[in-house]
Amino acid sequence: MAIVEVRNLYKSFTRGTESIDVLMDLSLDVEQGEFVALMGPSGSGKTTLLNLIAGLDNPTRGTIMVGDMEISSLSESELAHWRTRNVGFVFQFYNLLPVLTAYENVELPLLLLPLTREQRRHQVENALGLVGLTERMGHRPGQLSGGQCQRVGIARAIVTDPTIIVADEPTGALDAKSADDALNLLELLRSELKKTIIMVTHDPHAAGRAQRIVHLEKGRLVGADALTTAY
């Protein structure tokens, strides 16, 4: 059963008077425990699609099911609530809060959930242990390397045990070695923890680590993965 079901998705932005159609009649399934790479030229709508699946924005038309939740019609505040439990985000530039330590950065989303302090500590330590940064949990982002920051970012993405993990060019700002570490981690999340991962990338090498590559061009899926509207 697909954990992400995108059906006949349209997204257009209005800039001034003209409207730009970014995604057009797009349908996509992602299976539970699947690691999908999303590729395509710049401006093809990869980030837009990822944002919609992750509940950061509402589509113009079409439906998005994640788990058993139809998220395309949720309000901003409902989406925020939903994201905390269901989506883990990994960003290109890590986006850690510079004033917080690694531990506190990872703990941040947990503060929004009804957990006890012990439960939080347990989950944060697990997540940091998984990315191999237990030793560094008292450090601030400024005291960590880019690769380490991205690992903290990954720990933050998994700490709430979300339904899906989305990553927008997670290796885009990393050197080859750190990028490899991050990709190893994502693979590990899939193989060991059976996480569902959707990753946008320009890097064919990174995409090669995924189980499936989806190509996006001018707002439509191309190639074998394109689903027919009759699906």
Partner: peptide, 14 residues
């Protein structure tokens, strides 16, 4: 600006 966006992404309410 970005940090606050990140907090909202993580699920903080406006």
């Amino acid at each position: 600006w970005t940090e606050m966006a990140v907090m909202k992404v993580l699920g903080f309410q406006p």
